[in-house]
Amino acid sequence: MTYWVEEEEKKVHGKVYIIKDRCKQCGFCIEFCPQGVLQQSEEFNAKGYHPPKLVETDEKKCVGCGFCQMICPDFAIFVEKEEENEERD
């Protein structure tokens, strides 16, 4: 029988990359992000749309599930997972 051991838990975070000029402001990534990491920005891209930006409150909020990448129709967003090692050392 195994128990949940807190030390063995690896915290995985995602690093979000946004290609602003591809965005068409459909809002899927903002609406369907399970963690609510993204919000609409005030800036314009070359086509006049508002690309998303990260919510600044918590930098480690993204868990790297990659759903924004799957749901983006314009190949404008992708996520790279990164493991967090500093806290455990």
Binding site: H13, V16, Y17, I19, K20, K53, L54, F75, F78
Partner: peptide, 12 residues
């Protein structure tokens, strides 16, 4: 966590 413009891995 930061935002930069890089090629999407699907671009290949």
């Amino acid at each position: 966590m930061e935002i930069e413009a890089r090629a999407n891995p699907m671009d290949k």
